[in-house]
Design a protein around this nucleic acid. Structure first.
Lengths: 137, 137
DNA sequence: CTAGAACCTCACATGGATGTCAGGGACAAG
DNA sequence: CTTGTCCCTGACATCCATGTGAGGTTCTAG
Protein backbone atom coordinates (compact mmCIF):
# COMPACT_ATOMS: atom_id res chain seq x y z
CA UNK A 1 0.00 0.00 0.00
CA UNK A 2 1.09 3.59 -0.43
CA UNK A 3 1.66 6.09 2.30
CA UNK A 4 -1.79 7.63 2.21
CA UNK A 5 -3.46 4.34 2.89
CA UNK A 6 -1.09 3.49 5.69
CA UNK A 7 -1.85 6.89 7.14
CA UNK A 8 -5.58 6.43 7.05
CA UNK A 9 -5.37 2.89 8.39
CA UNK A 10 -3.26 3.88 11.35
CA UNK A 11 -4.66 7.32 11.97
CA UNK A 12 -1.16 8.75 11.76
CA UNK A 13 -0.50 11.65 9.43
CA UNK A 14 1.51 11.22 6.25
CA UNK A 15 3.95 13.73 7.60
CA UNK A 16 4.55 11.65 10.69
CA UNK A 17 5.09 8.48 8.70
CA UNK A 18 7.80 10.16 6.69
CA UNK A 19 9.28 11.45 9.91
CA UNK A 20 9.32 7.94 11.37
CA UNK A 21 11.25 6.76 8.37
CA UNK A 22 13.67 9.63 8.71
CA UNK A 23 14.21 8.59 12.32
CA UNK A 24 14.83 5.02 11.31
CA UNK A 25 11.67 3.64 12.88
CA UNK A 26 10.05 2.59 9.66
CA UNK A 27 11.35 1.37 6.35
CA UNK A 28 9.68 1.34 2.96
CA UNK A 29 10.34 -0.04 -0.44
CA UNK A 30 10.18 2.47 -3.23
CA UNK A 31 8.37 2.18 -6.51
CA UNK A 32 10.15 2.98 -9.77
CA UNK A 33 8.96 6.54 -9.45
CA UNK A 34 10.20 6.86 -5.89
CA UNK A 35 6.93 6.44 -4.04
CA UNK A 36 6.90 4.54 -0.75
CA UNK A 37 5.25 1.18 -0.52
CA UNK A 38 4.38 -0.70 2.63
CA UNK A 39 3.22 -4.16 3.52
CA UNK A 40 0.32 -4.90 5.81
CA UNK A 41 2.61 -5.66 8.70
CA UNK A 42 3.69 -2.05 8.80
CA UNK A 43 0.27 -1.16 10.12
CA UNK A 44 0.98 -2.99 13.36
CA UNK A 45 4.41 -1.55 13.49
CA UNK A 46 3.16 1.99 13.20
CA UNK A 47 0.56 1.55 15.89
CA UNK A 48 3.21 0.07 18.14
CA UNK A 49 5.43 3.05 17.49
CA UNK A 50 2.57 5.31 18.47
CA UNK A 51 2.13 3.34 21.66
CA UNK A 52 5.75 3.79 22.54
CA UNK A 53 5.54 7.50 21.84
CA UNK A 54 2.52 7.66 24.10
CA UNK A 55 4.55 5.87 26.74
CA UNK A 56 6.99 8.75 26.67
CA UNK A 57 9.84 7.16 24.73
CA UNK A 58 11.80 9.37 22.40
CA UNK A 59 12.29 8.39 18.79
CA UNK A 60 15.92 7.67 19.50
CA UNK A 61 15.00 5.19 22.19
CA UNK A 62 12.32 3.64 20.03
CA UNK A 63 14.84 3.27 17.25
CA UNK A 64 17.07 1.36 19.63
CA UNK A 65 14.32 -0.99 20.72
CA UNK A 66 12.43 -1.70 17.55
CA UNK A 67 14.97 -3.91 15.81
CA UNK A 68 14.95 -6.10 18.88
CA UNK A 69 11.17 -6.27 18.78
CA UNK A 70 11.00 -7.32 15.18
CA UNK A 71 13.80 -9.86 15.17
CA UNK A 72 15.54 -10.93 18.34
CA UNK A 73 19.00 -11.61 16.92
CA UNK A 74 22.15 -11.61 19.00
CA UNK A 75 23.56 -8.20 18.26
CA UNK A 76 20.58 -6.19 19.38
CA UNK A 77 19.31 -8.49 22.11
CA UNK A 78 22.43 -8.26 24.15
CA UNK A 79 22.87 -4.58 23.58
CA UNK A 80 19.38 -3.35 24.23
CA UNK A 81 17.83 -5.89 26.55
CA UNK A 82 19.09 -3.82 29.43
CA UNK A 83 17.66 -0.68 27.90
CA UNK A 84 14.30 -2.33 27.36
CA UNK A 85 14.11 -3.44 30.95
CA UNK A 86 15.03 0.03 32.03
CA UNK A 87 12.33 1.58 29.88
CA UNK A 88 9.79 -0.93 31.10
CA UNK A 89 10.62 -0.04 34.69
CA UNK A 90 10.36 3.61 33.94
CA UNK A 91 6.99 3.01 32.38
CA UNK A 92 5.89 1.10 35.46
CA UNK A 93 6.92 3.97 37.65
CA UNK A 94 5.07 6.38 35.44
CA UNK A 95 1.93 4.25 35.55
CA UNK A 96 2.11 4.14 39.32
CA UNK A 97 2.39 7.92 39.43
CA UNK A 98 -0.58 8.30 37.15
CA UNK A 99 -2.68 5.96 39.24
CA UNK A 100 -1.82 7.99 42.27
CA UNK A 101 -2.88 11.13 40.48
CA UNK A 102 -6.09 9.46 39.45
CA UNK A 103 -6.83 8.56 43.05
CA UNK A 104 -6.24 12.16 44.01
CA UNK A 105 -8.59 13.33 41.28
CA UNK A 106 -11.20 10.87 42.41
CA UNK A 107 -10.93 12.28 45.89
CA UNK A 108 -11.44 15.78 44.62
CA UNK A 109 -14.40 14.73 42.53
CA UNK A 110 -16.00 12.95 45.45
CA UNK A 111 -15.51 16.01 47.63
CA UNK A 112 -17.06 18.23 44.99
CA UNK A 113 -20.06 15.93 44.72
CA UNK A 114 -20.48 15.81 48.47
CA UNK A 115 -20.31 19.56 48.54
CA UNK A 116 -22.91 19.81 45.85
CA UNK A 117 -25.23 17.53 47.77
CA UNK A 118 -24.75 19.65 50.87
CA UNK A 119 -25.54 22.72 48.86
CA UNK A 120 -28.73 21.17 47.62
CA UNK A 121 -29.76 20.00 51.10
CA UNK A 122 -29.02 23.45 52.47
CA UNK A 123 -31.09 25.09 49.80
CA UNK A 124 -34.07 22.85 50.53
CA UNK A 125 -33.90 22.21 54.25
CA UNK A 126 -31.79 25.10 55.43
CA UNK A 127 -29.58 23.02 57.71
CA UNK A 128 -26.12 21.47 57.89
CA UNK A 129 -23.52 23.08 55.71
CA UNK A 130 -19.74 22.72 55.62
CA UNK A 131 -17.61 20.55 53.46
CA UNK A 132 -14.85 18.04 53.96
CA UNK A 133 -11.37 19.19 53.09
CA UNK A 134 -9.89 17.56 50.06
CA UNK A 135 -6.15 17.18 49.92
CA UNK A 136 -4.00 15.00 47.77
CA UNK A 137 -2.95 11.95 49.79
CA UNK B 1 9.87 30.97 52.29
CA UNK B 2 11.31 32.54 49.15
CA UNK B 3 11.24 31.10 45.69
CA UNK B 4 14.63 29.44 45.83
CA UNK B 5 13.68 27.38 48.82
CA UNK B 6 10.36 26.36 47.32
CA UNK B 7 12.26 25.31 44.23
CA UNK B 8 14.70 23.15 46.10
CA UNK B 9 11.99 21.65 48.27
CA UNK B 10 9.86 20.66 45.33
CA UNK B 11 12.58 19.91 42.84
CA UNK B 12 10.95 22.32 40.40
CA UNK B 13 13.07 25.04 38.84
CA UNK B 14 12.67 28.66 39.82
CA UNK B 15 11.84 29.42 36.23
CA UNK B 16 8.97 26.97 36.29
CA UNK B 17 7.57 28.34 39.53
CA UNK B 18 7.39 31.79 37.99
CA UNK B 19 5.78 30.26 34.96
CA UNK B 20 3.17 28.56 37.11
CA UNK B 21 2.31 31.89 38.65
CA UNK B 22 2.09 33.48 35.24
CA UNK B 23 -0.36 30.74 34.26
CA UNK B 24 -2.46 31.32 37.36
CA UNK B 25 -1.59 28.01 38.99
CA UNK B 26 0.27 29.48 41.91
CA UNK B 27 -0.03 32.69 43.87
CA UNK B 28 2.51 34.40 46.06
CA UNK B 29 2.61 37.28 48.46
CA UNK B 30 5.28 39.81 47.73
CA UNK B 31 7.71 41.38 50.17
CA UNK B 32 8.17 45.14 50.28
CA UNK B 33 10.93 44.80 47.75
CA UNK B 34 8.82 42.70 45.39
CA UNK B 35 10.19 39.26 46.19
CA UNK B 36 7.81 36.30 46.23
CA UNK B 37 7.00 34.60 49.49
CA UNK B 38 5.28 31.28 49.92
CA UNK B 39 3.77 29.33 52.77
CA UNK B 40 4.53 25.70 53.47
CA UNK B 41 1.27 24.59 51.89
CA UNK B 42 2.52 25.73 48.51
CA UNK B 43 4.94 22.84 48.53
CA UNK B 44 2.09 20.35 48.30
CA UNK B 45 0.39 22.48 45.74
CA UNK B 46 3.43 22.57 43.50
CA UNK B 47 3.95 18.84 43.66
CA UNK B 48 0.30 18.34 42.83
CA UNK B 49 0.66 20.64 39.85
CA UNK B 50 3.60 18.57 38.70
CA UNK B 51 1.51 15.46 39.03
CA UNK B 52 -1.18 16.92 36.85
CA UNK B 53 1.36 17.97 34.26
CA UNK B 54 2.72 14.45 34.29
CA UNK B 55 -0.81 13.22 33.74
CA UNK B 56 -0.88 15.18 30.52
CA UNK B 57 -3.06 18.10 31.56
CA UNK B 58 -2.26 21.46 30.06
CA UNK B 59 -1.70 24.45 32.27
CA UNK B 60 -5.00 25.88 31.12
CA UNK B 61 -6.84 22.79 32.28
CA UNK B 62 -4.95 22.70 35.54
CA UNK B 63 -5.84 26.32 36.09
CA UNK B 64 -9.48 25.39 35.69
CA UNK B 65 -9.30 22.54 38.15
CA UNK B 66 -7.08 23.84 40.90
CA UNK B 67 -9.50 26.34 42.45
CA UNK B 68 -11.94 23.50 42.83
CA UNK B 69 -9.31 21.37 44.49
CA UNK B 70 -8.38 23.97 47.01
CA UNK B 71 -11.82 25.17 47.97
CA UNK B 72 -14.96 23.47 46.70
CA UNK B 73 -17.24 26.47 46.55
CA UNK B 74 -20.34 26.65 44.37
CA UNK B 75 -19.10 28.63 41.41
CA UNK B 76 -16.24 26.36 40.48
CA UNK B 77 -17.76 23.06 41.59
CA UNK B 78 -20.69 23.30 39.24
CA UNK B 79 -18.64 24.61 36.37
CA UNK B 80 -15.70 22.28 36.48
CA UNK B 81 -17.00 19.09 38.02
CA UNK B 82 -17.86 17.92 34.57
CA UNK B 83 -14.42 18.80 33.31
CA UNK B 84 -12.76 17.01 36.19
CA UNK B 85 -14.69 13.86 35.51
CA UNK B 86 -13.78 14.13 31.87
CA UNK B 87 -10.09 14.52 32.68
CA UNK B 88 -10.23 11.64 35.10
CA UNK B 89 -11.71 9.43 32.41
CA UNK B 90 -9.12 10.51 29.94
CA UNK B 91 -6.44 9.69 32.45
CA UNK B 92 -7.97 6.27 32.99
CA UNK B 93 -7.89 5.63 29.29
CA UNK B 94 -4.30 6.71 29.13
CA UNK B 95 -3.34 4.45 32.00
CA UNK B 96 -5.02 1.54 30.29
CA UNK B 97 -3.05 2.26 27.11
CA UNK B 98 0.18 2.41 29.02
CA UNK B 99 -0.51 -0.86 30.76
CA UNK B 100 -1.13 -2.43 27.42
CA UNK B 101 2.17 -1.09 26.16
CA UNK B 102 3.88 -2.41 29.24
CA UNK B 103 2.47 -5.85 28.60
CA UNK B 104 3.78 -5.66 25.06
CA UNK B 105 7.20 -4.65 26.31
CA UNK B 106 7.17 -7.48 28.80
CA UNK B 107 6.45 -9.86 25.98
CA UNK B 108 9.36 -8.54 23.98
CA UNK B 109 11.67 -8.77 26.95
CA UNK B 110 10.63 -12.31 27.66
CA UNK B 111 11.21 -13.24 24.03
CA UNK B 112 14.65 -11.66 24.09
CA UNK B 113 15.54 -13.58 27.23
CA UNK B 114 14.31 -16.82 25.75
CA UNK B 115 16.34 -16.13 22.66
CA UNK B 116 19.41 -15.45 24.74
CA UNK B 117 18.98 -18.73 26.57
CA UNK B 118 18.65 -20.53 23.27
CA UNK B 119 21.82 -18.86 22.07
CA UNK B 120 23.65 -20.02 25.14
CA UNK B 121 22.32 -23.55 24.86
CA UNK B 122 23.25 -23.63 21.20
CA UNK B 123 26.76 -22.47 21.94
CA UNK B 124 27.22 -25.18 24.53
CA UNK B 125 25.26 -28.12 23.17
CA UNK B 126 24.99 -27.29 19.52
CA UNK B 127 21.34 -28.22 19.19
CA UNK B 128 17.88 -26.66 18.91
CA UNK B 129 17.85 -23.08 17.65
CA UNK B 130 14.98 -20.87 16.51
CA UNK B 131 13.08 -18.30 18.46
CA UNK B 132 9.46 -17.57 19.17
CA UNK B 133 7.98 -14.67 17.29
CA UNK B 134 7.18 -11.65 19.40
CA UNK B 135 4.39 -9.42 18.27
CA UNK B 136 2.41 -6.84 20.15
CA UNK B 137 -0.92 -8.40 21.14
C1' DC C 1 -3.44 11.57 -23.93
C1' DT C 2 -5.15 14.16 -20.08
C1' DA C 3 -6.95 15.63 -15.73
C1' DG C 4 -6.76 15.17 -11.07
C1' DA C 5 -5.41 12.90 -7.08
C1' DA C 6 -1.67 11.27 -4.55
C1' DC C 7 3.12 11.52 -3.77
C1' DC C 8 7.98 13.50 -3.59
C1' DT C 9 11.59 16.77 -1.19
C1' DC C 10 12.79 20.85 1.19
C1' DA C 11 12.10 24.10 4.42
C1' DC C 12 9.98 26.93 7.63
C1' DA C 13 6.32 27.34 11.46
C1' DT C 14 4.12 25.91 15.86
C1' DG C 15 3.22 24.95 20.71
C1' DG C 16 4.39 24.35 25.50
C1' DA C 17 7.25 23.79 29.31
C1' DT C 18 11.63 24.95 30.40
C1' DG C 19 16.66 26.83 29.95
C1' DT C 20 19.46 30.80 29.79
C1' DC C 21 21.27 35.40 29.61
C1' DA C 22 21.31 40.41 30.59
C1' DG C 23 20.80 44.21 33.48
C1' DG C 24 19.29 45.70 37.71
C1' DG C 25 17.31 45.58 42.68
C1' DA C 26 16.83 43.22 47.61
C1' DC C 27 18.66 41.68 51.65
C1' DA C 28 21.60 39.29 55.26
C1' DA C 29 26.25 39.22 57.30
C1' DG C 30 30.56 41.33 58.10
C1' DC D 1 28.79 50.76 53.77
C1' DT D 2 30.18 46.75 51.19
C1' DT D 3 30.01 42.37 49.34
C1' DG D 4 27.95 38.17 47.98
C1' DT D 5 23.87 35.72 47.23
C1' DC D 6 19.34 35.64 46.01
C1' DC D 7 15.65 37.67 43.48
C1' DC D 8 13.26 40.63 39.80
C1' DT D 9 11.58 41.34 34.77
C1' DG D 10 11.99 40.60 29.99
C1' DA D 11 13.37 38.38 26.13
C1' DC D 12 15.23 35.03 23.29
C1' DA D 13 16.63 29.90 22.76
C1' DT D 14 15.60 24.91 22.81
C1' DC D 15 13.51 20.37 22.02
C1' DC D 16 10.56 17.38 19.27
C1' DA D 17 6.66 15.70 17.06
C1' DT D 18 3.79 17.64 13.86
C1' DG D 19 1.61 21.12 10.66
C1' DT D 20 1.93 23.58 6.40
C1' DG D 21 3.13 25.36 1.93
C1' DA D 22 5.74 25.56 -2.40
C1' DG D 23 7.11 23.57 -6.54
C1' DG D 24 7.52 19.48 -9.02
C1' DT D 25 6.76 14.27 -10.29
C1' DT D 26 4.01 9.87 -10.46
C1' DC D 27 0.16 7.20 -10.90
C1' DT D 28 -4.65 6.03 -12.21
C1' DA D 29 -9.15 6.63 -14.29
C1' DG D 30 -11.50 8.15 -18.17
Amino acid sequence: MRIGELASRTGVSVRSLRYYEEQGLLKSSRSAGGQRHYTDSEVERVTFIQRLYAAGLSSRTIAELLPCVESPSEENSETSLERMVQERDRLSQHIADLMRTRRALDGVIAAARTHRENQRATAVVGSRQGSGACTAP
